[in-house]
Simulated scan of single mutants.
Amino acid sequence: MLSTKPMFSWADPSEDEASLLLSAYIADQGFPCVGAKAALAKGTLDILGARDIASAWDDLRIHDRLRCFAAQYRAEPSLFRSFAVVFSGPDDLSEEAFERAIWQRIQSLSDKDVWLGQAWDERVSPDPSNAHFSLSFGGEAFFVVGLHPRASRPARRFSRPTMIFNLHDQFETLREQGKYETMREKIMVRDEVLAGSRNPMLSRHGEASEARQYSGRAVDGGWQCPFRYSGK
């Protein structure tokens, strides 16, 4: 059984500052994601400070915390829990460069999951071209939201490169409770107020691969996801 306590317990020097910055960003009245606001209000937004998003320096520590987060959720499931990694930089990445960096981190984290013998969450597909694709860490499915300073959508524009891991199971719980569509529409309306238009990249799970949404960059129909699952 996977321990719920991280092996790598040291903190990045910027972690406290990162937590304050992200908490203030989400708490801002204009921020559209009501799920993230709920997690912040409940104290269930787990924030980890890390170094360069374009470097593998902190990947072991990130993966360790991510697996523990998954184990803690399975031990005590509840709505509105997220795990965020706030990187200290770089703060000048273009949307294309940020997209490359975020997928490099995802590939590295997934490869570590395979190396440690973690099973893929069978509720979702490991094929990024499949409409039912989601990532899996510690046996739990996740949807990733990327934030960075040069994002074209205001809701994705944050002072530091960030990866927010949202539990796929929570979306399914909201569907079962009949709350998913109402919450999704509320987020989209708030995002439209902020940006002046609806985000063309947003789709419901099962309609199109969610991989297209992770970095926040608007991609065309010919976009190819660089992720390849290395497990069986």
Rank of each mutant, 00 (worst) to 15 (best):
H63Q: 04
E210H: 06
A41V: 07
N130K: 09
A211P: 10
S94Y: 01
A208S: 14
K42T: 00
Y180W: 15
A56R: 12
M188Q: 15
E76V: 07
L116C: 09
A131D: 13
Y73I: 11
Y180I: 00
E210Q: 14
V124Q: 04
S215R: 14
A27M: 04
A151W: 12
F8R: 02
I102E: 07
P126H: 06
S125L: 08
S152R: 05
G30V: 01
G196S: 09
A71M: 11
F31D: 07
G138Y: 04
E17I: 05
G30R: 14
R217P: 02
W57R: 12
D12C: 02
W115A: 14
I106T: 03
L116K: 09
D91C: 10
T173I: 15
S134Q: 07
L21T: 07
S23A: 10
F80P: 10
F143A: 12
A41L: 03
P128C: 02
A70C: 09
V193G: 06
I106Q: 07
T4W: 05
R150V: 00
D59T: 05
S108G: 02
E76Q: 15
L20F: 10
S110N: 02
A131N: 13
P154L: 10
G221S: 12
R74G: 01
E181M: 14
F83T: 03
R228T: 06
Q177S: 11
P90W: 04
S215Q: 11
G43N: 04
R65N: 01
G35Q: 04
V114M: 05
E96L: 12
L93S: 09
A27S: 08
L167V: 07
E172R: 15
M201H: 05
E15L: 02
W223Q: 09
F171K: 13
A36P: 03
E15P: 00
F80D: 15
P226K: 11
W223V: 04
S94V: 02
Y229R: 01
I187L: 15
G30N: 14
R156T: 05
E176D: 13
F80R: 08
A11W: 02
W115F: 12
I164L: 13
L22Y: 06
F137K: 03
H168T: 11
Q107T: 03
R228K: 12
R61W: 06
D12E: 08
F31T: 00
K37G: 11
S134C: 00
P149G: 01
S110A: 02
D91V: 13
K42A: 15
E140W: 05
L167E: 00
I26H: 07
F142E: 08
S108Y: 08
E172W: 06
V86Q: 04
R81F: 06
L135D: 04
I62C: 02
Q170T: 10
A71G: 14
R217D: 03
P77T: 12
D127C: 03
S19I: 01
A155V: 10
R105C: 03
E192V: 00
A38R: 14
L174F: 14
A97W: 00
Q72R: 15
R105K: 12
I164V: 15
W10M: 07
I187A: 13
E140Q: 15
L93C: 11
R100P: 01
E185Q: 14
H132L: 08
H148K: 12
S203H: 13
